[in-house]
């Protein structure tokens, strides 16, 4: 079966019901996507599937084959997506484990809404658990990233 991940096509030999998460981690060695609950309850395994934040632990690989997958490793070429930059500027991570999923959820939110309000941020990000409690900084960094994204888009519009 063929999978399009981070712009590259991969050939994998997997049972069709194997969740994309385990295909990424065990078969393709893409370990940036994390396992946290296996039931779409925590968001640690969040990837972009056709541009939407998706829990890869609940997406059978057979379904994933029909679209494009982006993981944390493919979010940006140089690690400088505005969300990644904002996360570093605010020193968001503590243990760091959930942050791949947080960053993928935040970047998907900004892709569809460059300037989300506090309630929209809560709604989009409450599926992603951080047991270290970095939530206040996630909120702040997400607002920073939104500002940077809006400004970048405004700049493009003027040009």
């Amino acid at each position: 079966m063929k999978l399009k991940i981070n712009g590259r096509t991969h050939e994998v030999d997997a049972e069709p019901d194997m969740p994309l998460l385990w295909v990424l981690r065990d078969l393709l060695g893409l370990k940036g996507t994390k396992f946290g609950c296996g039931k779409a309850l925590c968001g640690a395994c969040t990837v972009h599937f056709n541009g939407s934040a998706t829990r890869s632990c609940q997406l059978p690989v057979s379904a994933a084959a029909e679209g494009e997958v982006v993981t944390i490793e493919g979010l940006s070429a140089d690690g400088n997506h505005p969300v990644q930059v904002a996360w570093r500027a605010r020193n968001v991570p503590q243990c760091g484990y959930c942050q791949s999923g947080q960053i993928m959820a935040a970047s998907a939110l900004l892709a569809r809404n460059a300037n989300p309000g506090d309630d929209e941020i809560d709604a989009a990000m409450s599926g992603n658990i951080c047991r270290c409690g970095t939530y206040p900084r996630i909120r702040a960094a997400l607002r920073d990233a939104a500002r940077a994204t809006s400004e970048a888009r405004a700049g493009e519009g003027e040009a």
């Binding site: 940036g32 996507t33 490793e73 690690g79 990644q84 991570p93 760091g96 942050q99």
Partner: peptide, 23 residues
């Protein structure tokens, strides 16, 4: 002083190694 953590860049790019990741 507020020295940023040494793992900061890796933690924001999925380039870290936890117990679950070693192969």
């Amino acid at each position: 002083r507020n020295v940023p953590i040494v793992d900061l860049h890796d933690m924001t790019t999925g380039n870290t190694t936890y117990g679950i990741d070693v192969a």
